[in-house]
Design a protein around this nucleic acid. Structure first.
Lengths: 125, 125
DNA sequence: CGGAATCCAGCGGGATACTG
DNA sequence: CAGTATCCCGCTGGATTCCG
């Protein structure tokens, strides 16, 4: 597996390495979901909320604000009545879809095996 | 982007879908790090702990036990004095390295852009 | 409609001390 | 060495209510 002498390309042991920071971010409960929901085009707040499940509005707002702050999505407000706010991924946000999908695919493929393994482990195997 | 009618291959809106479950798992503070540290071969408890940073032993144990329960790593105990315990990835655990590396690579590539975006956002841009 | 404000509980995670 | 046993804190995330 190790063809050259390099370890993880970064410094995983360093708490400030990129991987740690990003993992803390997309590892939270809704971030990855929000990004994946937006991969097919812009959505409004309510569409996002309904599509994702039962997220408290406060929590969804937090998630979206963080993503906006990180430059991964844009938030466009239309001064209308009733108000309309549209969220969309930035190019950088879109570039995250690939890696995220890789993990998601892996999850779908192995979720059954994992559940089985858990059952055996709990059975005192 | 949507060439056919399918959304995410799973049912992301279902709290019980694989992606959600896995993300909750590898999204925690140490799991992904532990897996990545083990990609080059088996390690002992202390080697894992020293390599990863400052993890409280209790927390590292929790992480490793969960991974063992999920069938992602093996825990082999040698009845010696002093005791020796070796952790190693299972084939399934090894198959997670790819997706994890994809995310990790993305993180290393974009961490600077993200930090910059945060700075601008905080500047009230 | 798209939040903001408030309150709150749980638990993930850390520090420390001890043990087979 | 490789944990276990306690204690404890903060923060994430949830429920609810109200507002422009």
């Amino acid at each position: 597996m190790v063809t050259n002498g390099t370890y993880e390309r970064g410094d995983l042991f360093d708490p400030n390495c990129g991987t740690r920071l990003i993992l803390d971010r997309i590892g939270d409960k809704w971030t990855a979901l929000a990004v994946l929901r937006l991969q097919h085009g812009p959505l409004r707040f309510t569409e996002l909320r309904d599509g994702i499940g039962s997220v408290a509005p406060k929590v969804l707002t937090q998630t979206l604000r963080r993503l906006e702050r990180d430059g991964l999505l844009t938030r466009e407000v239309f001064a209308e009545v009733p108000p309309r706010v549209v969220y969309d991924l930035t190019p950088m946000g879109r570039s995250l879809i690939g890696p995220l999908t890789a993990v998601s695919d892996w999850a779908e493929e192995h979720i059954n095996a994992i559940t089985t393994a858990q059952g055996q482990y709990d059975a005192g195997s």
